[in-house]
Simulated scan of single mutants.
Amino acid sequence: MSTTGLQDRIIKTPLDLVGLIMLADIDAVARRTAYTGGTLLLGDALVLCPGLHKQQDAPFLSKGEYPACAALTTGYVFRVENEATTLYLQRMSKSGHLTTMKVTSESDVAPLGRPLIAVYPLASGMTVGTLAFLCAYGDWWAAGVLSTLILARVANIVTIRRRRSSGWHGQSEPGVQGDLLVLLSQDRWVRLRGAVDDLKAVTSGQWLRDPTPLETVLTSTATLVVYLAAIFLVCATGAGKAYVLMLMIVSAGFVMTANANMKELRMSGKLLRVEGPPKAYGRRLDLANELILETGSRDWALRLGMVQAEEEEEGPVTM
């Protein structure tokens, strides 16, 4: 084999494997789904980055944690069942600190008061620009691959929107204010305040219902389509492969940057955000004693196991 032929093979082989980047196990798209509560627009289908076929795994990002929670007003103890809310609490809380958060209706927050994630729309614009260039360049294989990925995104977005649950959230208690203490793993503590109905909307019930057989077939097909797109990208020109590679890397950076700047959680028409800096405590007992003094009740602390029961007092609740 000539030196020139060997150089050509060395240069060609890495570009032939560009399709593998689509299959990278990156959870950026799934995290975006969780942080927005699944309220995705069809325009999100234009955001293409590695791991897009893992979008249905959004409920698993909280690692199966269902943290114990107590109502400081009534002493009732339960668990946070919403996986997206748990993921947000894990992200925004800090070990040995109490983080206070407020839950409100999205309609009560002025649009100008919400953070603008300017980088996210850039990912959509890059996809449109890249697709237009590939069509003008005549690389129909690369253009077809991008179109296929967009179809896969549409299938996943439609399924997520269908799976969003607006069902059971407990009995409505209009006009009642609530105050919850959530005990997360790694000694992270969160206090949630807001109307009881708003608190129920973000903590109780089912965020994404189980997929139907038809939805399972649809998302499985979309996943296979992504793998097929990775295979057929080998038929594209070198320039087409390079542009797809650049699109995937830059879009992943945009989505991850947007996720890092999401300081609030949107869920069932509610908005959950942090209020003030977290407060450090030397011991969890110090936190319990402070809140007992503030609320004038210790029932919730006993049921959570944060303080020891005295004679004739109820001990911790098994959940």
Results as ranks from 00 to 15, higher is better:
residue 4 T to D: 15
residue 8 D to E: 14
residue 15 L to F: 12
residue 23 L to N: 06
residue 24 A to H: 04
residue 25 D to C: 12
residue 25 D to F: 08
residue 30 A to P: 05
residue 46 L to S: 03
residue 50 P to W: 06
residue 51 G to R: 03
residue 61 L to H: 02
residue 61 L to D: 07
residue 63 K to L: 15
residue 69 C to T: 04
residue 70 A to S: 12
residue 73 T to D: 14
residue 77 V to N: 01
residue 81 E to C: 09
residue 88 Y to M: 05
residue 89 L to D: 00
residue 90 Q to R: 08
residue 91 R to S: 06
residue 92 M to S: 03
residue 94 K to C: 03
residue 98 L to P: 08
residue 101 M to R: 05
residue 101 M to D: 04
residue 111 P to S: 12
residue 112 L to T: 08
residue 116 L to C: 07
residue 119 V to M: 11
residue 134 L to H: 12
residue 134 L to G: 12
residue 137 Y to D: 12
residue 140 W to T: 14
residue 146 L to I: 12
residue 149 L to D: 09
residue 152 A to L: 01
residue 171 Q to V: 10
residue 174 P to C: 05
residue 176 V to M: 06
residue 178 G to N: 07
residue 181 L to A: 09
residue 182 V to A: 04
residue 185 S to D: 14
residue 186 Q to I: 01
residue 188 R to N: 02
residue 193 R to Q: 14
residue 195 A to L: 14
residue 195 A to Q: 14
residue 209 R to P: 06
residue 217 V to L: 13
residue 221 T to Y: 12
residue 225 V to Y: 09
residue 239 A to P: 10
residue 241 K to N: 05
residue 242 A to L: 05
residue 243 Y to M: 15
residue 248 M to N: 13
residue 249 I to W: 13
residue 253 G to R: 03
residue 257 T to A: 14
residue 259 N to H: 02
residue 261 N to C: 03
residue 262 M to L: 07
residue 263 K to T: 10
residue 267 M to T: 08
residue 272 L to Y: 09
residue 276 G to T: 06
residue 280 A to G: 01
residue 302 L to Q: 00
residue 303 R to I: 09
residue 305 G to H: 12
residue 306 M to K: 10
residue 307 V to C: 10
residue 319 M to N: 10
